[in-house]
Amino acid sequence: MTMTTALILDCDTGIDDALAIFYGAHHGADFRLCTVTHGNVPVERGARNTLTLLDAVGLHHVPVHQGAARPFAQELHTAEYVHGDDGLGNSELPESNRHISGSLAAAEIVAQARLHPGELVLVAIGPLTNIGMALLLEPKLAQLIKRVVVMGGAVGIQGNISPAAEANVWHDPEAAQLVVDAEWDVLFVGLEITLSTVLTPAGLARIENSTDPRAQLAWKIMAHYLDFHEKTMGVRTAVLHDPLAMALALEPELGRYKLVNAYVELGQGPSRGALVGDLRATRPAPVDPRAKGVIRIVESIDAEAFHEKFLEALGA
């Protein structure tokens, strides 16, 4: 019997969020609900996309709750240049006819954590505004959540939206700092490891040539993403940022980890939004994953196993 993981997915559904939903649906994610934030697209568009993708993988029962429309302390920025005007690669998918659930995202995260203390894994693959708001609403949230997996940060390497910052953290640094400071077991799956998930030409060919409806849908969504990476990286490929976070939430044994003391740069200079981890060998490593300001980062992954599981989730 397949083991399942009860989780809340907080997302900003663009292309790699969609691929993470495909991954989770096939590999044991028990989606209790999805909450949506601003990020890749405006929050209303992201909520509709999330419903559409859940329906596409047969998860018609999973509710979607709309959340923050903008960051705490800066203007809204979106990334249609990466994900297409509709957030799904301009694929013009038929939209779900389901309704967005009435309660707001942060309140619903708190409500579910209270109903199921110690049971839920919180997977955040967009900006962290909803999670920050939930922490403000419920001071005991960190004790109620089993563990947290965030796709975010670029510890020790250059960023992708600025020289120092990764996009999800940069989109709301103040919220990200709340997440770092919360006394819970939080894993940041950052660019320092997600950039090792680049799909090979052979992997892309398996998706393109598959007759499985999941692969055909994914290929339609991915075309715009491949175009973007070809322009920016010089190679027609896709980086599986969000699917890796989902994979490590479901199967932590795919990676090796280390604890670091960390903070988010909140100044108004060019390093704003950088997730800074103390990597100095001369400083003792933290030992308590639930201490304030301590996060996990990923040292290495079994990339071959991850890629195979990703392709399997698409039927490729």
Rank of each mutant, 00 (worst) to 15 (best):
M1K: 13
T4G: 12
I8E: 02
T13E: 08
I21V: 10
H26V: 11
R32I: 11
G39D: 11
G39A: 12
V41M: 13
V43R: 04
A47M: 05
L51P: 02
D55V: 06
A68S: 13
Q74K: 15
E75D: 14
H77P: 09
T78Q: 07
A79M: 13
G84R: 01
G89L: 03
S91I: 08
S101V: 00
A106R: 07
A107M: 06
E108H: 06
V110G: 00
V110A: 06
H116Y: 15
I131N: 03
L137N: 14
V150F: 03
G156S: 08
I157H: 04
I161A: 14
S162C: 11
P163G: 10
A164D: 10
A165Q: 03
A175V: 06
V180L: 04
D181S: 12
F188S: 01
V189W: 02
L195N: 15
V198G: 13
V198H: 12
A202C: 05
G203N: 09
R206F: 11
S210G: 10
T211Y: 12
P213N: 10
A215Y: 05
W219N: 13
W219I: 05
D227N: 11
D227R: 05
F228W: 08
D242V: 12
P243A: 01
P243G: 01
N261L: 09
G267I: 08
G269K: 06
G273P: 02
G273T: 03
G277P: 02
V287A: 12
V287Q: 13
A291L: 12
A303Q: 11
A303M: 08
E308F: 07
E312F: 10
A313M: 06
L314M: 07
G315Q: 08
